[in-house]
């Protein structure tokens, strides 16, 4: 816990944050895939994923099955780390720094302090400066993104609504963050103090964003991305990489494709994973996105985000 002097702007020169941002830089322009077992992790790597997120249940299953969603078992995480050569991420509950300590100990490359899991603290997020392992956090707007960055997040992902296969909220959150950043760039110096108050974010970070016209950490996208065109859409809207959760390995909302025993279902997952990877790199080339989409077998059934009751939304977790 030696790093407590860091806050706001002051932390961006340290070697700790530079190494965290360095790995985030390497992950740009790619796809990070949720995986629940070794076989899915291998499929993700073979398809060209830049990283895998190890978890017990993908958001669609957590949503369907209910209960308390926690950090994945260390056994599963170790198996996945051993199975692939690409970086491995894992999720800790919001505010659950002891889960994060376990994940750091296991050698996870990035920790996602995630609203997909059941929050462990209703007031405080994890002090991410206290860790050597970099963190990614979700955000729905600029203020939320900057609060997470102040706490030490080295990567932001728009939240969207996880486990739905409905991209509408990922779009909404990305557009909102981009719009709020643009608005800051035209403000005068004296107006930035008030902007910091309005966004509920540290002044130094608000000023940094106003001058640079972008977040001081990479801005990725997550929550409801299910098709190659969804990925291309988010990249064109300003995402620097996409997270795909339930979209690749799910059949029905609570039933994953059986990639371990059914060769046809394995092929379906491979086709979706490969196509999303291609569309993310070539997001600006509709011909390639069309070809990639054509090669996809089947798709996740999905759940319209508008049909979800307010209390069941995951995106409203975190503050």
């Amino acid at each position: 816990m030696a790093d407590h002097t860091h806050n706001g702007n002051g932390s961006f020169g340290t070697s700790s944050i530079r190494l965290k941002l360095g790995l985030a830089e390497m992950l740009k322009g790619g796809v990070i895939m949720d995986v629940m077992n070794v076989e899915q992790a291998r499929i993700a790597e073979e398809a060209g994923a830049i990283s895998v997120m190890a978890l017990e249940r993908v958001p669609a299953m957590i949503r369907a099955e209910g209960g308390v969603a926690r950090m994945a078992s260390p056994k599963l995480i170790k198996q996945i780390i051993a199975a692939v050569s690409i970086p491995v991420m894992a999720k800790a509950r919001i505010g659950h720094f002891a889960e994060a300590q376990v994940l750091q100990h296991l050698g996870v490359d990035f920790i996602d302090e995630s609203e997909v899991l059941t929050p462990a603290d209703e007031t405080y997020h994890i002090d991410k400066h206290a860790f050597t392992t970099p963190f990614v956090c979700g955000a729905r707007n600029l203020g939320e993104a900057l609060r997470r960055i102040a706490e030490g997040a080295a990567m932001i992902r728009t939240k969207g609504e996880p486990g739905t296969g409905d991209v509408v909220h990922a779009v909404q959150h990305m557009r909102q963050i981009v719009r709020e950043i643009k608005a800051l760039t035209v403000l005068g110096d004296e107006e930035l103090y008030n902007a910091a108050k309005v966004h509920g974010a540290p002044y130094e970070l608000v000023r940094m964003v106003a001058k640079a016209g972008k977040l001081p950490v990479p801005n990725f996208s997550a929550g409801g991305i299910a098709t190659p065109a969804d990925a291309a859409l988010m990249m064109q809207l300003g995402a620097e990489t996409v997270f795909v959760g339930s979209g690749i390995f799910m059949k029905e909302r609570a039933t994953p494709l059986d990639v371990e025993n059914d060769p046809k279902e394995r092929e379906e997952a491979v086709s979706r994973a490969r196509a999303i990877v291609i569309a993310t790199t070539h997001f600006n080339d509709p011909k390639i996105v069309a070809e990639a989409s054509e090669a996809v077998i089947g798709s996740m059934k999905g759940l319209a985000a508008a049909a979800i009751e307010e209390s069941q939304l995951m995106q409203t977790r975190g503050w």
Partner: peptide, 14 residues
């Protein structure tokens, strides 16, 4: 550049 060499290879195979 840096990144994931396994990802690069997927694209290079095409």
């Amino acid at each position: 550049p840096g990144g994931e060499s396994t990802t690069f290879l997927k694209f290079l195979e095409r």
